[in-house]
């Protein structure tokens, strides 16, 4: 009887005791999304991407445009040759500590940003090194057999050359069009195709943003959202721009599962060119809603230096990673990355 009582006291003491002995040395610190600094004796689990862990560099991707290998036909037409290799066995750390099997064009999600001028002959030498069938389907104007839907390219080295004249002017997506289509898209087989007008656009600091998401647990809902794949990346690595300089963003929404996505800019409004097909802007706004593969060109410039957010105003998406910062510097003289 006494033993039993002692046993009960003993057990309850053991179970309550750990609470009293929690005074350990605390070393690491981190900042919460609301700016509070927290200390811990353990490890930090924070979607904070550092350069050493990047498989894919969103900074590089942001201002990178592929113009292909240029040659000219007898008639003087510009020919741009690209080699695109599809793979489907890569495991990428798409957010710190979270690994996902990405399917890639040229090793990255999104694939390379292909850029040509209206009327150029674009030749895509497509090689499928994946284990499954893949294709490349470009949005735009081309012949039926270049549509990448019925011309399935088998895995293990299958080849196909897509050939078409670049057009119409604007910003378009390209993606794999093998069934089940949703699966091939959400794994990462997509990219951006920009067609410049012959007369060119005004000089600007140009960047490309693919709004995408990842369903890492395959429940037909995205676990992560981002501009250019890595959640919260541009929040921790603000995009540096200058006051008084024209900024041009080619935005393409590749989010699946959710019917809409959107783009909200802080402290400013942008001129919006839907699909970029017209040279006159349709809207002057700070909020554009985009459905699947809907895209456009945004142009703006900042008058005041400082930090400005840009994010989905579908706040769920921004709290799952689709959120970034422009760091506007007061420096009118700077390099302007306009590609060609």
């Amino acid at each position: 009887m006494v033993c039993l009582l002692l046993l009960v006291i003993g057990v309850s003491t053991i179970m309550v005791f750990p609470i009293f002995s929690n005074a350990q040395s605390e070393q690491k610190t981190f900042v919460t999304h609301s700016g509070v600094i927290v200390r811990t004796s353990g490890e930090i689990i924070d979607p904070l991407y550092t350069v050493s862990t990047v498989d894919f560099d969103p900074d590089k991707f942001l201002r990178n445009f592929e113009y292909g290998v240029v040659s000219y036909s007898e008639t003087g037409q510009t020919i741009r040759d690209y080699t695109i290799i599809a793979e489907d066995d890569k495991i990428q750390e798409i957010s710190p500590g979270v690994f996902y099997n990405v399917w890639t064009f040229n090793g990255t999600v999104p694939g390379p940003t292909i850029r040509a001028t209206e009327g150029d002959l674009v030749r895509i030498h497509f090689i499928n090194n994946g284990s499954k069938s893949h294709t490349m389907h470009f949005h735009g104007i081309h012949r039926s057999e270049m549509d990448g839907v019925f011309e399935i390219v088998g895995g293990g080295g299958g080849k196909f050359t897509y050939e078409f004249e670049a057009g119409p002017v604007g910003v378009h997506p390209y993606h794999c069009h093998v069934m089940p289509l949703e699966e091939h898209i959400v794994h990462g087989l997509y990219g951006v195709f920009i067609v410049d007008p012959k007369e060119g656009r005004a000089l600007a600091d140009e960047m490309v943003m693919v709004l995408n998401g990842f369903d890492t647990d395959f429940d037909a809902e995205n676990n992560f959202y981002a501009a250019n794949t890595i959640p919260f990346y541009y929040q921790h690595h603000p995009i540096q721009i200058n006051t008084g300089e024209l900024i041009r963003i080619y935005v393409v929404n590749m989010v699946e599962f959710d019917p809409v996505n959107n783009f909200h800019l802080h402290g400013n409004l942008y001129q919006y060119y839907p699909t970029g097909t017209d040279l006159v802007p349709s809207f002057y706004t700070d909020m554009i809603t985009l459905s699947q593969t809907e895209r456009g060109i945004m142009e703006f410039q900042y008058d005041f230096p400082g930090k400005y957010l840009f994010h989905a105003h579908k706040v769920e998406f921004s709290e799952k990673g689709w959120l970034g910062l422009f760091l506007v510097k007061n420096n009118s003289k700077s390099e302007v990355n306009n590609g060609n």
Binding site: K28, T40, G42, I45, P47, P96, G97, P231
Partner: peptide, 21 residues
């Protein structure tokens, strides 16, 4: 396993894990 991320109401939050992940 490795714990990589925490969320509250399906919204990602930076967090600490003790003693380790």
């Amino acid at each position: 396993v490795q714990i990589s991320m925490a969320d509250v109401n399906d919204r990602i939050q930076p967090a600490a894990i003790e003693p380790d992940k």
